[in-house]
């Protein structure tokens, strides 16, 4: 049965310097949770606190209803896949996979059977007698995951496991890890700074900044309803456009253009519009602004337009298909009013 995790007011401090501030989070049994955020946001530290590799300075870590703060790493029922793979270079693949079970003094036959199962799942049977240095990056990654599987843990932790792989292999391994989650059904926590990985793999995304959770929720919830400017800017690729808005009694205007929004916009300081939600076709929404086209990228399936408003604010637009857009021309950008995001002066969503 899958395992639940609760973080209650979790704090991490190095001396006087607090780096994780009162984190509260519930992870449901079998959930694939992704911690995402920029470098230094505390996502890896939080993961290592759950793993037992970093002492917890305050609050409670609860796994399946049991407080785990002082339980050693090996007894938390956790397996972790490291960014560097952390394979033992002097052992072959079989010995790497078997190390944990041998340490636990499991019977030889059981070790063999569990290693074989993990090797079958990850299709690394032909590699069992090889040393890590004889493996490619992708194969090492599989062995690292295999080492976690062999232990049959309650929880899998992944610390940026794909960051050392090339782009093609990343996509491939991303799919395999997602499949692995479906097959095994374990609770998994995955740390990445890549929001595409987060969006494609997660049941729940936790966006962190400076040791604080900015927002936690399902990927599309974060995409559609970001709580603040940081989350709005972090989730989604290309990044959301932010335009300075001027609010008056009746509505808002951007770059001198009054927007006819069907809802109250009182207190708006910034308007957010995702590049893929902006069009250049009249009748597809309300007018956003007149923009001058600075650069056009034809990607085949999409056309990306880099433009600026009359008052010099950048606006990026992603159009479906191949569109003829003239460089240097001034065009009118439109947007579905339901897809407009409004933020107050503090950066919080309205």
């Amino acid at each position: 049965m899958a395992t639940s995790i609760q973080l209650r007011q979790l704090v991490k401090a190095y001396g006087d310097m607090e780096v994780i501030h009162n984190i509260d989070l519930d992870i449901d049994p079998g959930e694939f949770t992704v911690f995402v955020g920029p470098s230094g946001c505390g996502k890896s530290t939080l993961l290592r606190m759950i793993a037992g590799l970093e002492p917890i300075s305050g609050g409670d870590l609860v796994i399946d209803g049991q407080r785990m703060n002082d339980v050693p790493a090996a007894r938390r029922g956790i397996a972790m896949v490291f960014q560097s793979y952390a394979l033992y270079p002097h052992m072959n693949v079989y010995q790497n996979l078997a190390f944990g079970l041998e340490t636990a003094k499991a019977p030889k036959a059981e070790i063999q059977q569990r290693v074989q199962r993990a090797a079958d799942i990850l299709q690394i049977v032909p590699l069992l007698q090889r040393k890590p240095k004889q493996l490619s990056g992708g194969q090492r990654q599989r062995v690292a995951i295999g080492r976690a599987i062999v232990r049959e843990p309650k929880i899998f932790l992944f610390d940026e496991p794909l960051s050392n792989l090339d782009a093609e292999l990343r996509v491939q391994m991303r799919v395999e890890i997602a499949k692995l989650h479906n097959d095994l059904g374990n609770t998994m926590i995955y740390v990445t700074h890549d929001q595409v990985e987060a969006m494609t793999m997660a049941d729940k995304i936790v966006v962190l900044r400076l040791g604080v959770i900015e927002q936690a929720g399902a990927p599309l919830e974060l995409y559609n309803n970001p709580k603040n400017l940081f989350v709005a800017g972090f989730i989604g690729s290309p990044k959301m456009n932010f335009l300075t808005a001027t609010a008056d009694g009746s509505g808002i205007s951007v770059a001198g253009n009054a927007l006819a929004l069907p809802r109250s916009a009182a207190g708006t300081a910034t308007l957010g519009a995702r590049p893929e939600h902006i069009t250049l076709q009249p009748g597809t929404g309300i007018k956003l602004a007149d923009v001058r086209v600075d650069l056009v990228e034809n990607l085949g399936g999409q056309t990306v337009v880099y433009a600026t408003t009359a008052n010099g604010q950048p606006v990026n637009i992603v159009l479906e298909g191949q569109r003829p857009v003239e460089l240097g021309s001034t065009v009118t950008a439109y947007i579905d009013p339901a897809r407009v995001h409004l933020f107050n002066a503090d950066g919080n969503a309205l």
């Binding site: 050693p72 090996a74 490291f82 960014q83 952390a86 340490t103 636990a104």
Partner: peptide, 11 residues
Amino acid sequence: DMYEAASLDGA
């Protein structure tokens, strides 16, 4: 991280 992996393995 070799030691961390080993400690998670119960060593």
